[in-house]
Amino acid sequence: MSVQELQKTATLEHTADGHHHSDGILGEQFETLEQQNTSYLIGMWAFIVQEVLFFGAIFTAYAIYRFKYVLEFTLAHHELSVPIGTLNTFVLLFSSYTMARAVRAAMQNRHKKQAFYLFLTFLFAGVFMVNKYFEYSAKFEHHLFPGGDYSAHAVVEHAQKMGELREVEENGQKFYELGKTRDGQFTAFKRVTPQEFEQRTRLFFGFYFVMTGLHGLHVLIGMIIIGILIGRALIDHAKNKPVADFMPVEMTGLYWHLVDIVWIFLFPLLYLIGR
């Protein structure tokens, strides 16, 4: 057979080289399903390690500044909504559970059940994002997004109410004293200029938006993948497919747990500590 002939039959040749499997699960490069599945798993774990280093670097930077500007960061912490954060934590935890159920259903080739649990996961992720939307818009409203109209005003006001910040004026210059009020007595730990205070809280919200933003992006990507998986599961169900490849669901599950775990670190480090 010449090259020209082969080009005509190339597709046929390609699918008929002796490694084709009628169920279409096994990738052409693999010998056995077991090899394919463990490959996917190792690949996914390598990706997760990569993600850990990705987030790890920014957590490191955050830890350094949280240590350096502990009082300013503590006051900025107060601006984050613990109820929404807590709600989102539980939402994500539940979504991890439904995801695990979806993986199990996929392994059992129960397509409808799988679609159902995936849909629940998708729904929880959606709730998370909606909460995030409200949370973000509140920050924008209070000018806490570190953009052009950033102002630490909300932080200052809140901290004053809690008795942890005092405005003082000396030689015509304004300062903030950061401290604690006990028994009506204010003790100052630190004095900063309004400009410094603005810079440091801005840094906090910079970290907040970068970290939760990157995490949110991961949630969003996860939602797209889950959406596709729901469609696939429904098609499998409609076609009454006896066996389907559960690895995509399994890998998405791993990814989803990673997203969850990143949040489990973000929530206390951003919302809870310093309270």
Partner: peptide, 20 residues
């Protein structure tokens, strides 16, 4: 620049920062 960063034991931080 930032007197509050490291405070002498036994003193209160009353000094304004001279940053900038």
């Amino acid at each position: 620049l930032n007197p509050g960063a490291k405070i002498h034991a036994g003193y209160q931080n009353l000094m304004p920062p001279y940053q900038g």
